[in-house]
Write a protein that binds this DNA or RNA. Structure first.
Lengths: 131, 131
DNA sequence: CCAATAGATAAGTAGCGACTTATATAGTCG
DNA sequence: CGACTATATAAGTCGCTACTTATCTATTGG
């Protein structure tokens, strides 16, 4: 269930989710729906569905030669929870290494000028791209 | 306020939002925070902030030579609302041309095999990409 | 069993978007 | 005013990802 927001970042995939919000649909119907907006090939849709599935945003149910896709609460909940955490925020509720810094920084907020922000200065030539 | 989910699709930008959840921060602090995870240049961060601003996810407040970025409810609400609409779904609450089709399709759902999905078949050579 | 339909996978291409360095703008301080 | 800090913009490069066509697999019906 990885890459939820990456999956949501693509308009065509959001449109698929909107369609599935009306109930489960076979691929053919999804393709037809997307074509109402812009020309797209069946394989392209199949690939989008694969991404949505990997993100935990949809589930598949095979029935005969058809495959019915439906919304998956799991991914949607993950997205909703992340957004909720942003607003809730009683102080860095994110389980990230970022937290250490964020928490420290947070001490100096509210009406003050924040800390000196010591700018490690990228004197290193980070030319190497690996991420 | 466009491209909310596109903006959220980028990990670095989500990390920025997570940091801002702890309170408004100047750019320098944001840069430092991102560098705790991976090397990144200041202009790159500036560009991410621009995207977030365009999406209505953050606001800026200038104070002296510093620019304080903070979360913007507008964009976050837009995202939350879209997700909520997906699950609510008492029948296609999306204001999209898709609706016509979706609604029609929805009639045949629930345990039935959906309509014939007449596959307009992309016999046209949609090589031209403009969207 | 064979033809036909539904969908997924393979392989290649193109364009967008996230990065970089270099430079411009703005505000502060001596 | 001129140097310095903080941030934004310009311009160019490169990889990822969304697309394409071609093909494979699976299920059904005759």
């Amino acid at each position: 269930m990885d890459g939820v927001f990456e999956a949501l970042g693509e308009p065509a995939r959001r449109q698929i989710l909107e369609l599935l919000a009306t109930g489960e649909q076979p691929v053919g119907t999804i393709v037809a729906a997307l074509r109402a907006r812009a020309p797209i090939s069946q394989p392209a849709v199949s690939q989008h569905l694969k991404v949505l599935r990997a993100a935990g945003l949809v589930t598949v149910r095979a029935e005969g030669t058809h495959r019915y896709y439906a919304l998956d609460q799991a991914g949607l909940d993950a997205a909703r929870d992340w957004l909720a955490a942003l607003l809730a925020d009683p102080l860095a509720p994110f389980a990230q290494p970022l937290d250490a810094l964020a928490t420290e920084v947070a001490r100096g907020r509210r009406g003050h000028q924040a800390g000196p922000a010591s700018e490690t200065e990228a004197s290193e030539r980070h030319r190497g791209r690996s991420a």
